[in-house]
């Protein structure tokens, strides 16, 4: 068994242009997805659009001070990387292998973009 993060990439502008009914239908599709794959789901979330993102990084050229950006971190408006499709949400699933994870990923409702499936390293500290 391994854990996989399914990253959902979407086009925020197309998303914003959806009518109320369409949004309702998309939500229903996610609920149906959750019901279908409930046993494998370990978490998930829907993000506000990338326009609400704030990036925090180490100022250019500064030596690392430990591993973190620290107090003088550069705080900027916007996502870490600008792309047409931005991270819009995620599901965390547990699956026996990649084929099983991909079978779940195929069912993720996402009308404007697509999803990326990433295996989690088993040694990473688990939070609950």
């Amino acid at each position: 068994m391994g854990q996989y993060l399914i990253l959902i990439y979407t086009d925020d502008a197309s998303h914003a242009a959806m009518g109320e009914q369409e949004v309702g239908a998309l939500m229903a599709a996610h609920q149906a997805f959750g019901a279908e794959h409930g046993e494998a789901l370990r978490g998930g979330g829907w993000l506000h659009p990338a326009a609400t993102a704030t990036s925090v990084r180490r100022p250019d050229g500064r030596e690392t001070n430990g591993f973190a950006a620290g107090e003088d971190a550069l705080v900027t408006d916007g996502p870490y990387g600008e792309t047409k499709e931005a991270l819009g949400g995620y599901y965390l699933v547990e699956a026996p292998d990649l084929d099983a994870a991909l079978a779940i990923a195929r069912d993720v409702p996402e009308p404007f973009g697509g999803v990326e499936v990433r295996p989690l390293r088993p040694t990473v500290q688990q939070y609950s």
Partner: peptide, 14 residues
């Protein structure tokens, strides 16, 4: 290895 590509003949669906 890391992504868990299985060592398996796929089932009839796939």
């Amino acid at each position: 290895a890391a992504a868990g590509v299985p060592f398996r003949v796929p089932g009839p669906d796939e």
